[in-house]
């Protein structure tokens, strides 16, 4: 760090990197060691950020254990301190960090699990909107269904992972045995917050791109034809999810459904 750097630049550097000397302007009234007093700030910053990260990624923390998580979080926060006072965004880059963090390379599912927890947080803080209930679809003419164009809930996170992050997360909440989960199986889900609680709705494989298509404005009929062959059989289930899960907030019927 340049000697010309401002006091706060050097203060900041020394907070995040214990190898950096405390700025020489820092002093104490009684001649006691300024570095030892400075350590209070260093500790406040580090501990509060580790706690914030642990609160956002409780399942990742449970998977690796408290001590390991703390050490890993310390490495992360030094490289990626929060970029904004919006602490509800701190850790958005944590999944990517995990994907490149050698000590957890054997836990290949960990980045996907972190992505799921980050998506849950985004859903929790997303904008409010009133979901349609199944009755709201009751008057629809089945013949018009191919032209159905939907608006999906603003909290919706379409989740698709190469590992069984959904099952692992569920097992950690006490839904199913952890040992029974094969982590190396791809999984997809809708993550959304119809009212206040975040729901995770598992999807058959191929379902994620179906909901991506609907959100992009494809009419139902066209989205159905775009389904991967192995997912086509699940169309009734996907439509059921569209109607039952609260993911839809409004719809319109597009008359011309041709390409």
């Amino acid at each position: 760090m340049s000697l010309n750097a401002s006091l706060q630049s050097r203060f900041r550097q020394a907070l995040l990197d214990p190898e950096t000397a405390v700025p020489p302007e820092v002093t104490s009234w009684n001649g006691s060691d300024p570095a030892q007093r400075f350590a209070v700030y260093r500790n406040n910053v580090t501990v509060s950020l580790i706690e914030a990260l642990g609160a956002t990624f409780p399942t990742v923390k449970a998977m690796v254990g408290e001590d390991f998580f703390r050490d890993m979080a310390r490495v992360y926060l030094r490289a990626h301190p929060p970029s904004s006072p919006m602490m509800v965004r701190f850790g958005e880059s944590f999944p990517d960090f995990l994907a490149g963090f050698a000590p957890v390379a054997t836990l290949a599912y960990l980045p996907d699990l972190a992505r799921l927890e980050a998506a849950r947080r985004r859903a929790f803080h997303a904008a409010d909107a009133a979901s349609l209930s199944p009755e709201d679809f009751a008057s629809l003419d089945p013949a018009a269904l191919p032209g159905l164009v939907v608006t999906l809930h603003p909290s919706l996170q379409v989740f698709s992972a190469r590992h069984a992050a959904v099952s692992l997360w569920a097992a950690h909440q006490g839904q199913g045995a952890l040992e029974a989960v094969d982590p190396h199986v791809p999984e997809e889900a809708l993550i959304l917050r119809p009212i206040y609680e975040v729901d995770i709705v598992p999807l058959p494989l191929g379902g994620a791109s179906f909901f991506d298509d609907l959100r992009a404005g494809y009419p139902l009929g066209e989205a159905a034809t775009r389904l991967a062959p192995e997912a086509a059989a699940h169309l009734p289930l996907l439509i059921n999810t569209l109607v039952q899960s609260g993911v839809t907030i409004s719809y319109a019927i597009q008359k011309d459904t041709g390409p």
Partner: peptide, 12 residues
């Protein structure tokens, strides 16, 4: 609490 785009989550 913020410097060089890092928010340090403490009152410095």
């Amino acid at each position: 609490s913020t410097h060089d785009d890092a928010y340090l989550n403490d009152l410095l």
